[in-house]
Design a binder for these strands. Structure first.
Length: 229
DNA sequence: CCCTGATTCGC
DNA sequence: GCGAATCAGG
């Protein structure tokens, strides 16, 4: 899989939007998390809260980072000394990551987010939809500035809609609305077997070639067209 | 263990 | 330029 302009655009958008490398890799398909990170660096858009880099200690004379690579025939020398045993307390990990929310509470606006500086969660669709048509440079899709930060948990409005995280091989990936909008989601219907869309949207995505002169107006392809995996 | 991003380095 | 292997922190 090569890095096309579209894929790079998707990478940038998601990376800058705070999506993790894994999410991006999964979304793009055909690439690994490492590939995404590597590409991001080559694009010059690194810098994001990294667990490792958060460290600010200045270890003056640090030993050369040697790796005792057991699998690589590297020419490295100076084996790494033995590790020191460390006691690890019971880890407490608990963070809902999937977008499942069936909350029974009324769809009222919960408490306003007191910390609006949370990482925004971006909605980037299949194929990377920065393009509206083959020719025209993305005329920035409608003014969707008045958008609120999407909370970490799905908001009530989209609780029952197919979000980016709900995409699978079995649901229709046809985008509904525009990315960035609070209610942006995906069709979510059962797919037409063998296609990324449901029957209805397959009809929109794939149209028979009509004889010359009898062409219909441009078919409304989704952003960038169907993904090819 | 899992996750994360950063870095290295052979290709 | 690419990305697997590796490192290293949470």
């Amino acid at each position: 899989m090569s890095w096309t302009d579209e894929r790079i655009a998707t990478l940038k958008k998601m990376w800058e939007g705070g999506a993790t490398a894994s999410q991006i890799a999964d979304e793009l398909g055909g690439v690994s998390r490492n590939a995404v990170i590597g590409k991001a660096h080559r694009l010059g858009l690194k810098a994001r809260p990294s667990p490792v880099k958060a460290n600010d200690k200045k270890a003056a004379a640090k030993k050369p980072a040697v790796k005792a690579a057991p699998k690589k025939p590297a020419v490295k020398a100076a084996p790494k000394p033995a590790e020191k045993p460390i006691a690890k307390p019971a880890p407490k990990a608990e963070e809902p990551r999937a977008a499942t929310a069936a909350s029974s509470s009324v769809p009222s606006q919960p408490v306003p987010n007191p910390t609006p500086d949370l990482p925004k969660i971006v909605s980037v669709g299949p194929g990377g939809f920065l393009r509206q048509g083959p020719g025209d440079q993305q005329a920035p899709i409608p003014p969707a500035p008045p958008r609120r930060l999407v909370p970490a948990k799905p908001s009530p409005e989209i609780a029952d809609k197919t979000s980016l995280l709900d995409l699978s091989d079995k649901v229709c990936r046809w985008p509904m609305g525009h990315p960035g909008e609070p209610d942006f989601h995906f069709c979510g219907e059962a797919v037409n077997p063998g296609f990324p869309y449901c029957v209805e949207h397959c009809g929109r995505a794939y149209q028979a070639q009509l004889p010359r002169g009898a062409r219909r107006p441009p078919p409304p392809l989704p952003f960038g067209g169907p993904r090819v995996r």
